[in-house]
Design a protein around this nucleic acid. Sequence first.
DNA 1: AAGAGTTTTGTATCCGGTTACACCTTTTTT
DNA 2: AAAAAAGGTGTAACCGGATACAAAACTCTT
Lengths: 349, 349
Amino acid sequence: MDVIRKNKISIRDIAKECNVSVATVSRVLNNSSAVKEQTRLRVQKVIDKYNYKPNELARGLYTQRTKSIGVILPEITNHFFAKVFLEIERAALEYGQTVFLCNTLSDYKLEDFYTERLTEKQVDGLLLLGGRVNQTKTNIQYVNLLKREVFPTPVVIINGKLDNYSENCATVSSDEYEAMYQAVQYLTGLGHRNIAFLGGKKGIMSTDIKLAALKAAAKSYNFVIKKEWIKLSDYTYQGGVSAMNKLLAEKDKPTAIIAINDEAAAGIINTCISKGYRVPDDFSVLGFDDSFIAATTLPSITTLSHPYKKLGSIAVSFINDMINEKPIGKDKNISLRMSIVERQSCKRL
Amino acid sequence: MDVIRKNKISIRDIAKECNVSVATVSRVLNNSSAVKEQTRLRVQKVIDKYNYKPNELARGLYTQRTKSIGVILPEITNHFFAKVFLEIERAALEYGQTVFLCNTLSDYKLEDFYTERLTEKQVDGLLLLGGRVNQTKTNIQYVNLLKREVFPTPVVIINGKLDNYSENCATVSSDEYEAMYQAVQYLTGLGHRNIAFLGGKKGIMSTDIKLAALKAAAKSYNFVIKKEWIKLSDYTYQGGVSAMNKLLAEKDKPTAIIAINDEAAAGIINTCISKGYRVPDDFSVLGFDDSFIAATTLPSITTLSHPYKKLGSIAVSFINDMINEKPIGKDKNISLRMSIVERQSCKRL
DNA sequence: AAGAGTTTTGTATCCGGTTACACCTTTTTT
DNA sequence: AAAAAAGGTGTAACCGGATACAAAACTCTT
């Protein structure tokens, strides 16, 4: 079967109509070197007449720059990822880059697949968030593009880290460890010393970090986290519900609850209310992430917010430094402070 | 400044190492025509050895297919758009397509800008949702790519429509008019005849359609919608709050409330509860969209769900029909039925 | 073993841009 | 006014694939 060529108008057509060479048209398009004003105008006129836009494929083929970057994340329906993505796109726009979005649904095969796909599409860089890079102990296979010694595609990881080959990629993270300290400081400041931790999942980075930080903070503030007050489940609303139900089954009860994230916190709050407890009167509940849901529960959730804007803009600027082979140096692993957003779910004891 | 070429390994390198022509390597890559098994294996071996992946830019330049499609929408942080996007991507994957995501933040300039950008990037098709196409009366400028008589980029609009140039694009929509009929039938079935409508904004398609449908349905079911029970605001949680506050200021009160969407419904419910009313005992509240929030409020929201999966898969299949120049015929404007999801926010009178 | 038919492979061109380098003008310098 | 410098433009090669067409290498007849 013959390929049907949709010969759109090309630079050669423009050149012919202007009686100039393609080089001149190209110069006008890119403002790359001096063109006599008179010629410039003549060419521009024809460009406008046909509303001619250069083919970015052809351009990219020669320049080795596509001005496209790829973002790989688990699920864009998750509000956290959506917020980060929005900031990434906003930042990319400033660098003239457009972004591919790939959802892996936490399927490792899809992670690998998309990594390859985007590389074939010659993206200038790759941003990874969540997924395998959030697994504390997994040896990451899909980042074998980082192993390539020659001209690897620049990779930046947001809120995750790589144990192997990390020298080939930069990371930008929210400092969840420190954030947990803030959380504990805030709650102890309100008089709480009996604190539970609900939700999350062992082996996932943000859970492991938060738990470790919580234990360390407890030691600093001189109280203990009872084992039976730690109920892991997952990162969902339902996870919050089930963890809270387990907690309520204990005879000893805390006065404050730290949830792995806002979705779980919402589940926790609603479970309390359904069972006749009041929030924050009977339990103070603290969330993480500052998701959309945090502002829409009753009571609304006091939470630790990610520095979304910075997360996106720094990641994109890192990518561009790497693209332009500027050394990022030792600052290539940045940790950003999270900040508390006070709402209604926590109360002085 | 000299351009630095990152000469990655190319098809010519592979060909040389195998002592065959580039044509043969290309044939192996694409399984396009018979290659002697022995040769095939030899070539494949070298391909694997270098983990060689063909450059999609070069391929696309010749084939005039990028296997990329673009999605333009207002804001991915909006759960409705995120859900649709996820389905689009899933469907695109089956066609071997990867997708660019562009957020316009409802800025018309950005809509135009991205439309142009994506066209320059030679996307095989464009999917539009929300934004200007959701404005009932605006004359759409940015779809002037549809005006091109020769080889226009295929465009499919999801939940929107175009007044001009619509013959050049297909549409896939949720039938919100019929959905409102379902809503009214459901509420009247529960004995409600005093129904309010809160949220939304005049001039936006889904508001205008729903209002018109509500009035028509009221007529069919023989009741009237009081003017003072229609409080427009917007599509947000806060919009629900403010509309509900206005409604509560009226001395005459309805028994059921239809919200423009679930976010507004959440605001409405929380406002009721904050003011000492009970939902669904004092007010039944019905939402639209089946957003994430609908399952996480207390009470959870009974709502009309979009056919997300179909919305995405049909849109993508339309795009591909257009790409392959298959005539879509008169079915190119499809309207899909929404379905009610019963939760806890509505109750028999 | 020559000729016909089939299978496999190679050559050269194309896709649509960018740019090094050469060449031709024009302006400036002396 | 000639030489040097600067300015403007064109030619041709290149980026890395796909494929039409030609040619070579087989296989099968008779």
